[in-house]
Each structure stands twice: as C-alpha cells, then as structure tokens.
Design a protein around this nucleic acid. Structure first.
Length: 137
RNA sequence: GCGGAUGGCUGGACGGUCGCACCUCUUCGGGGGUGAGGAAAGUCCGGACUCCAUGGAGCAACGGCGCCGGGUAAUCCCCGGCCAGGGCAACCUGAGGGAAAGCGCCACAGAGAACAGACUACCGCCCCUAGGGGUGGAAAAGGUGAAAAGGUGGGGUAAGAGCCCACCGCUUUGGUGGCAACAUCAAUGGCACGGCAAGCCCCGCCGGGAGCAAAACCAAAUAGGGACCGCGCGGGCGCAAGCCCGGGGCCGCUUCAGCCCCAGCAGGUCCGGGUUGGUUGCACGAGCGUUUUGGUAACAAGACGCCCAGAUGAAUGGCCGUCCAAGCAGGGCAACCUGCGGGACAAAAUCCGGCUUACAGGCCAUCCGCAAGG
C-alpha cells in the first residue's frame, strides 16, 4: 500500500515526484539526482526547505523534485503536502527559476499543508531570489 | 414518548478557474471519456496465479485447527442449531474434544488440598474434680479457602453419618425424539468420579516452500561460469574378448521407479547467470447491478443488463464562490434570525474471499422493557 517512499532512513528523503509541471519543467525521478541536490545550496522557509543545484551540463531545462518523508505525517498528509508544493512550483518556478538548475522542495510537518497558499508562493519567490543572489555575488 | 438491543446505509453538494494520470479522436491548434475506500489500513487467516523441489507410497518430526450440522475455490470465515454463563427482556459472551491413559501443578490461608483429615465444638466411659485430663465414638456444626468428598427436609442415634426415606443432582443401563451435538423419560447404584489440557500429553482432521521486488521477454554496457568435440577417464579378475563390484547427489527417514555426476586442458563450437532501463504479468473477474426459483439462513442455480482506476520518486489535485450540517456567541416564549467557524478515519500498488483495528456527524429497518392513549 505504500509507495517506495524510498530510503527514508537517512535524511536525504527522497521526494516523490509528480510529473506535474508545465512544459518547460521536468521532474526528478532518480535517487542520485536527489542526493546531488542535497549537497547543493539550500534555503529554509516556514513551509518548506528549498535545495538547489546548477547541473553544469549542456541542457537548460528546469528540473524539480519533492520530498515528504514520514515526518510530515501519514500517507494522506504527505500527498496533500506534495500537491501544494507541486502547485506553487507550477505557478512560480517558470518565471523565477533559472535554466539548467535542479530544485528540490522538502515538506514540513503541519505547516506545508496548512500555510496560506499566497504566502507559500511568496516564500518560494523569496527563497529563489536569496539563493541566486548569493550565488551570483 | 423515554430507555435499550440488533442489522444496514451514508460519510459533504453544486459551480467557476488553473492543473495531473490513463484511454481515445484529431484538420496537430485541440476535443472527448474515465479516475480511491468502507475500511484502499494492519498484513492476521484462506485462495487464485508464478517460480522452485523428479514422481508414487508409507512413517516420523513440526505447525495449525477442535460442540454438532450446513455453506464455500478455501478458511481460524459465514449460516443454522446445541450446551454453559449474564440480562426483566430483545439479546450478548464462550480456544466449547479427552482429566474413571499417564506425568505434572494447585500459592496464601487452613486441622486437613487428593485413594482425606480432626483445630474448635458434639457424645459415651474413666480420673482429678469451679474446670480440666485420658480414652473411645462420630464427622452433622464453627472457622479457612478459588475449591473441603453429593444438596434440602424428615426419620434415626449416646452423639452422629446415604445409616434409612422423599425430592433434586450424579453413575450405569435402556426407551423415545433428533442426520448430529443434545434433549427427555424410566429403571438402577447409595454416591464410587475436585480443578487446570491458552502445562506436557492423548485422539481426530488439515498442511511442501517462497512470493508480483513472483515470473517471462527485449535492449545496452561489463567481469567471471557451463555443455559438446578432441586427447583422456573409478576398483578387481583375465593374455584377450569380456565379467564382477560400485560410490555420491536429487528439501527428514524407508522403499519402488527414474535421472544426473564420478581426473585434467594449451584448443575449437555453442549456451546460460547478475546489474540498469523498458515491455509483459496488469485488470473480464470465484466481477457488479436488477430479478426469478430452491433453501429458516449462509448460499446456489437461471435470466436480463453493465465494463467499473491502473500509477511506478508513484495520477485522482490547488485556489475561489454559494449552499448543507457539527460547534461557539448574541437576540427571541418559540419556530427562527445574525455573526464566527470548520469538515471523521484514512488514500489503490497482482487480484479475490474473510478477520481485526480506526471513524465527526447524519439516516433507515426490525425487536425488547417501561409509561401513556385507543
């Protein structure tokens, strides 16, 4: 009854990815991609933790992954958290993300499912500006 | 009307706007269809299906089950019945075979706890003699305990006792009813037989193992194995042809049948295994709905209609509006009005049949008790 939920034991978490997003976005499916993103830059917000990594390969697509471990709650709570994260990514990332980067959003217990939706979008914009501002500086 | 018992249903609705998975149509712009649960859960039973084990028979071991009958693919499940316990009742609960095969265990308390025993108390006799001691009888009364050797009443006696009698219980035998568990009636014996088998055990029945990450196929890249050919090949006897004797393996043992192996390699030809992706398995099934017939029922048979999720870092959603109902506050005798507010448990992962557990609120049916009315 449970999805792979992947290697939960370590703190990588493995996101569950919904191929949701629009055309220019791709979804991370490989465990290795998640591990690589985990070693990249990161920025926490109230509703989630954002990890980002510049792939430095020839492709210029934006890729995203989502991680909601069992700490977030039961299956129903995890699914809801992932869907909300997926939705703010769909609305925000095409405009504010940078090509050639991988992003991973990690859900938090309680907050990810309950925070005001508009505020979550602002959170993501703020986190993206902070990361890319720091990397360019 | 109040209280209660049982069974079942439902578990937000509608709309707007972005979006997801699969299928499908397409003029490649896009359009259409379908898309979580009663528990999808726990993974506790039973099956289908797949692979592994060479097949048959017997035995042993291990595990499970356990009133009787029926249902089913099957079950530890379901239905009906029996017995025991609880409740005024509807109804509920019950690992419910065997303790006159054996072993073992019954703590504390108590005189005594398992082929009984005698502390207080009772009675007779004897002795010192307010009272007590000795001896014998007896096991009813008190006390202890979860449990004390049939119960109640009467007779009887020095006092007592199934010692005798009646009823109840029990043993044994028989009759009757029932497929059976069992019930009931009669006779019989004066009563001999404590509990625990979720202790060992005995009896009866059932059971091969692993599981869709099973398994099959395709494509890549990569280190290492097997078969056949050739040289050659177990022991003994023999000049030789040949004859005799084998050993080991095939999930425990025995047996029968069958199969395989029994030195090595510088070569030649061919085949298989693991990893990562992909495809299949993978959704037409012990299927669902309606209905008829048989059956007390579980269920079975028939007719008609229907196609109903197939993901894999894993779709079935985000936001907003109106309404519905739980809750809170205010107003009103009340119906109700206004505002706030928030939506039970829990999400498919090969598929079925069950069990168990979780669950806000709402609804329906049948039945029982009490009260009132006709």
């Amino acid at each position: 009854m449970k999805p792979p939920e992947a290697t939960r034991g370590d703190h990588q978490g493995t996101g569950d990815l919904p191929p949701a997003v629009s055309v220019c976005l791709e979804v991370l499916r490989k465990r290795a991609d998640f591990l690589a993103a985990n070693r990249g830059q990161r920025c926490g917000t109230k509703a989630f933790l954002l990890q980002a990594r510049h792939r430095k390969d020839d492709t210029d697509s934006i890729r995203v992954g989502f991680t909601c471990s069992k700490k977030v709650g039961n299956a129903v709570a995890r699914n809801r958290a992932k869907r909300r994260l997926r939705e703010i990514v769909r609305l925000v990332l095409p405009k504010h993300g940078q090509a050639g980067w991988d992003y991973v959003l990690i859900g938090r217990a309680e907050v990810t499912a309950a925070r005001d939706f508009a505020q979550m979008q602002d959170d993501l914009r703020w986190a993206l500006e902070k990361l890319h501002g720091a990397s360019s500086a």
